[in-house]
Design a protein around this nucleic acid. Structure first.
Lengths: 345, 345
DNA sequence: ATGTTCAATGACTACGTAAGCATTGAATCC
DNA sequence: GGATTCAATGCTTACGTAGTCATTGAACAT
């Protein structure tokens, strides 16, 4: 309010008010100032007030960097996440949200190409983070093994291939897709096309397994087609291939909602009606899947639960033996939309 | 590959290999090890190899925390961002992506309620970040003034009300909305309804001003209606109010794409055809606006440019005088979708 | 041969905090 | 009243690095 609250006691403009400065003003030792901010109950009310007063006057803010160096904990969780994709964005914000309630922050390490992961992991190692989330289904085995060697808690998020290597949290990809397949069978589908995103992603493989196994058991044909990316555009383009096929299937199962949206719109653009001509399912349960324009049948991941479990693992006091990492699987819920509404044959 | 590369030279298991340890093994001083990692050109090739060899053998990783404490720079940029909203998610990932190319990381501070901002800013202050992005149009004046006092670079992202207080980067909200308004006038609209998100958001106000001024100048009626949130659901619900009004407008201008999507679907659910019965525009240029289901006419923000400019400001060597903060305004591009396709009256 | 220069390296210290240990003094006990 | 106890506080050090300054010795000029 007044003009530039500088020139307090010494000539330090404003940069770097330390606990030592506060101690000097309050007439106590640096140790006592530190105690006021970390374990106030150990300080008598009188001095506590004195210190807090002085701190407020000087505009003292504890330096987390120094604290981290000394205490060996940063209160920061790192997240290695693909730079693109609706799904990962939603996971990310959920992490940030939940961590904020636990006074932890999220440090983002995004990568555009799977090949960039190595560099990112090297960069991650320099920060002594309290924990690390590996949120990508394309991180390789060797990289996972390398991370297991780390002395910091790590958790793989929705990366089935990481199970058994590092602690993991996943939705039940296989069972979820199997249930969607059952639903299609019940609805009368007899020839199904499965559209994957990127076949090297472990989620893609696991989900496809869930579909093909169930469909096979019920004598329903199932062909795999790769969109090439987990994007709307990839789905839109692959829709062309679908309509140009010899035999048009009864239903299309897509391994992710975002791709499914593209398939949906691409099919419509090609004159194929969903669900009249073709049933369609997605996976993930993105918020957009409930939008009226899509109303997509999909498997809804309880992202909040998944994230909560992942955080539990990271912040757990007792480190589980690295020989047998925990693996949490959360089952999803099917959302029945109009893209699989029963046909009137 | 071998069994647990521990028991190297001393009994230190794996935690905390320091430059001192490396120095001991390499037979040089700690200072030289430091030089190898920060300014290698100052070290002779021979010693450099020795050190790098020892470092690799011990698995030495520089400690960024300690480095930050000493050098007073963290290489981390903080971002204060709302926890919800497609737009902010896209901005966030863009920041992360671009910062990664400059060897900077993004530390996320998300908040769910505008009231949480104070707490978040207090938390932010503890980290001695190299810069801070304030990405929210609901941060108050007093909080902005408080941030200006900070000794660290700050930039407000798309927060018109911050202009003149702290350095800012924004899309040209007013002109953009004005151009959309002109487009509607050209298309024949004579009565327009403006749907805002949250009227206290400075973007909302500025955008509305752009619309109402232009419409007023051309004698076109314009009413403001508040959706109450920048969400699909809010838009969907407000669509009911629109159809229930005495006089149904020719066009609806929505202050954000995400809300516009909801309005779009809500109108359709109510039996109103877009664009046959009603024209519709959005703002932001989210990727979904181009999706076939919407094909929304909207103002596309060059998010990559905006983010690039923001980063420039944060990482600039010379700090501009705090009395006259820079203000960058980037103009947007109109994307003409079918929601304003000319009607055949 | 001696002085000069400069690259290469080492010794030392500060960054701001927290934790262990030492010290003080008042309250309590017998 | 003297010994005991314990809360409150101070003193000291370590966390791991980078920058400052000092030192060394080889290459070069005169």
């Amino acid at each position: 309010m007044s003009s530039k609250s500088g020139a307090d006691s010494s000539r330090r403009t404003r940069r770097g008010v330390t606990s030592v400065d506060v101690a000097a003003v309050a007439g106590v030792s640096q140790a006592t100032v530190g105690r006021v901010f970390s374990s106030p109950e150990k300080v008598s009310p009188a001095t506590r007030d004195k210190v807090q007063d002085a701190a407020a006057r000087l505009g003292y803010v504890p330096n987390v960097i120094a604290r981290s160096l000394k205490s060996q904990r940063t209160n920061i969780i790192g997240a290695v996440v693909p730079a693109f994709g609706e799904y990962w964005q939603s996971v990310l914000t959920e992490f940030s949200r939940q961590l904020a309630t636990k006074d932890r922050q999220l440090l983002l390490f995004s990568f555009a190409e799977p090949g960039d992961v190595d560099g990112v992991l090297a960069s991650v190692a320099q920060y002594r983070l309290d924990g690390l989330v590996l949120a990508s289904a394309t991180i390789g085995q060797d990289q996972l093994i390398q991370m297991r060697e780390s002395d910091r808690p790590v958790v793989a998020f929705n990366h089935p291939a990481a199970t058994g290597i590092v602690p993991s949290v996943s939705v039940d990809n296989e069972a979820g897709m199997a249930r969607l397949a059952m639903h299609l069978i019940d609805t009368g589908a007899r020839e199904i096309l499965y559209v994957g995103g990127v076949s090297s992603a472990s989620t893609d493989q696991t989900r496809y397994r869930g579909a093909s196994r169930t469909l096979g058991e019920h004598g329903v044909a199932c062909t795999y087609l790769e969109a090439g990316a987990f994007t709307y555009e990839a789905g839109y383009k692959v829709a062309q291939h679908i309509v140009e096929r010899q035999s048009v299937p009864d239903a299309v199962m897509v391994s992710s909602d975002e791709v499914a949206f593209g398939v949906h719109d691409g099919l419509r653009a090609a004159g194929v009606q969903v669900p009249a001509d073709l049933l369609l399912t997605g996976f993930d349960g993105l918020s957009q899947s409930a939008w009226a324009g899509f109303d997509l049948t999909t498997l809804v991941q309880a992202t909040d639960v998944l994230v909560a479990r992942a955080i539990e693992i990271l912040l757990a006091d007792d480190r589980p033996p690295e020989s047998d990492p925990v693996s949490v699987v959360v089952s999803g819920t099917i959302r029945y939309g109009k893209t699989t509404a029963k046909r009137h044959d």
